[in-house]
Design a protein around this nucleic acid. Structure first.
Length: 518
DNA sequence: ATAGGGTTAG
């Protein structure tokens, strides 16, 4: 074209973006301005998307300035793209500033701000924005928004909110959407209910590689390594190509179920069979796999040989460090913590874990000198904690602290569990957190027992099935809601669902007002 | 010619 106009330039830029080359789109934008062709709202939405793909905040801000000089700062699509760009560049405040100034918002702009919060470790704010959307907007949430909301629930470990979102998914008719299903599978696994993950997964007739990967990772977290590997084989036999994340899941599964030889075989087959070149994250899984079973020298040798970027290094050395602690290998623990301290990342973790390794080896002088050095230099580690969510209450647990409500009951329960697990072949402590010589069935029983008994201790599963039915008969639901209720009941257990439906459904004058789920 | 969603190792 002798004189390409704004449409030709923008089309070409969009083409490069679709082909995954946002950098070239930005060069074209420069060239366009040089040729005195003036951009419009289509152009700006396109170049801002290029910036979000590159997570290039500096260029993004420059173009934001252009947008204001050209007067497009009130355009809905341009603003939505800006909100997304700031979010992808980890500038949540920037995203929020643009969003708050928007005069008009739609589902896309709300989704963008929810994602901006959810992907930057602000799950509570993400859920708050979803609540605000339902309150302010006349629009219904769609599959994009719900997938993001479920993602926020997953990152917070909020099972009840996740189930409510699941209810909205069913009502909105997007429960068989592949992205939504993947988010649900992941959410249930992260919220402690992998059996629900499985139920959701089994309802999807053509799961994608991501859906399979979510389920593989979910099963792996629960020590169901054999199940993860079966899923992987099933996926391959259905002709679905695995990706790099799938192999992280498979290696993770092998690592956490003590399947070292199979793990190594999978690593070898990655490139040979599927053309995926293993990178630092895969080798880190293998370091973990070797380290967990006590093959520390091999793990160390492998760790030293891996080329890592600044993000991967801390994860790699942190992995080796915790394996060293597990097996009391002071020599390697020192090396690994030095690597962490030098990279100036996870320094507090390095100090504490090294100190614990010394303690395990009985080298108390080293323990004390490390601890006093931490005090002197002001290095403080935030203690980790676990929590369960029951109705509207969150109960948090810290190591060594049984001073919470009904703490002594939970402690004696855990002691009994530990005894039973040992009876069945669980080996704790120095030999690593791997189930040894336990049949899959027995393992499932142990895991099942664990969550169920813990829940019982807090009265979580206190509603007998019979009462559930009585409650159902007393409810008056419209046909639509009743159908939805039955659908959800198929997926998750009844006694949980009744409570959720009750809580978020308002029944007035004996009729069902189903407009407000949240 | 334009904006939004899911899986990732310690």
């Amino acid at each position: 074209m002798l004189e390409p106009n704004v449409v030709s330039y923008t089309s070409l830029m969009a083409g490069y973006i679709n082909m995954g080359q946002p950098q070239i789109a930005l060069l074209l934008f420069q060239k366009m301005l040089g040729n005195l062709v003036w951009p419009n709202e289509f152009t700006f939405a396109t170049v801002i998307k290029a910036c979000s793909m590159l997570a290039d905040l500096i260029t993004g801000k420059q173009i934001h300035t252009h947008i204001e000089t050209f007067g497009f700062q009130y355009n809905l699509v341009v603003c939505s793209s800006l909100v997304d760009m700031y979010g992808k560049c980890n500038d949540v405040d920037g995203a929020r500033r643009v969003f708050d100034l928007m005069g008009c918002r739609n589902v896309v702009s709300w989704t963008s701000i929810i994602v901006a919060h959810a992907q930057n470790a602000q799950g509570h704010e993400a859920l708050e924005m979803f609540r605000e959307f339902n309150y302010q907007s006349r629009d219904r949430p769609n599959q994009h928004m719900l997938a993001s909301v479920i993602n926020a629930c997953a990152s917070l470990g909020r099972l009840v909110s996740g189930k409510v979102a699941h209810g909205v998914v069913v009502r909105s008719g997007c429960e068989f959407n592949d992205v939504v299903a993947s988010a649900l599978v992941d959410m249930y696994a992260k919220c402690g209910s992998v059996n629900y993950s499985d139920k959701v997964f089994n309802r999807i007739s053509n799961p994608s590689v991501v859906t399979y990967t979510s389920m593989i990772v979910g099963a792996a977290k629960y020590g169901l390594g054999r199940f993860s590997l079966d899923l992987f084989n099933e996926m391959i036999s259905r002709g679905i190509k695995p990706n790099d994340v799938t192999f992280v899941g498979v290696l993770h599964a092998c690592s956490h179920s003590g399947l070292v030889d199979e793990g190594i075989q999978h690593l070898d087959s990655m490139y040979r069979k599927y053309g995926i070149i293993p990178d630092a994250k895969h080798y880190t899984c293998v370091v973990d796999m070797l380290g967990r079973t006590g093959r520390l020298d091999e793990a160390y040798k492998l760790a030293k040989s891996i080329q890592v970027d600044p993000d991967g290094g801390p994860l790699l050395w942190g992995t080796l460090l915790s394996a060293s602690r597990l097996h009391g290998r002071v020599d390697i623990a020192v090396e690994a913590s030095n690597q962490l301290i030098e990279s100036n990342q996870q320094v507090a973790n390095a100090y504490v874990t090294l100190s614990n390794t010394y303690a395990l080896a009985g080298e108390w002088e080293n323990v004390h000198s490390l601890r006093s050095e931490m005090k002197r230099t002001g290095i403080h580690k935030e203690p980790g904690c676990s929590w369960v969510e029951i109705r509207d209450q969150t109960y948090a647990f810290y190591a060594g602290n049984a001073l919470f409500e009904r703490g002594s009951e939970v402690l004696s329960l855990l002691r009994e569990l530990e005894r039973k697990m040992k009876e069945r072949g669980y080996v704790g402590g120095k030999t690593g957190l791997v189930f040894v010589d336990v049949e899959d069935e027995a393992r499932e029983e142990i895991v099942g027992l664990h969550s169920e008994r813990l829940a019982l201790a807090f009265g979580l599963i206190s509603i007998p099935k019979g009462i559930t039915i009585r409650i159902m008969k007393n409810l008056r639901m419209c046909r639509d809601c009743h159908d939805v209720f039955k659908l959800i009941s198929d997926i998750v257990e009844r006694d949980f669902v009744v409570r959720d439906v009750n809580r978020f459904h308002h029944f007035r004058n004996g009729s069902c007002s189903c407009g407000n789920f949240w």
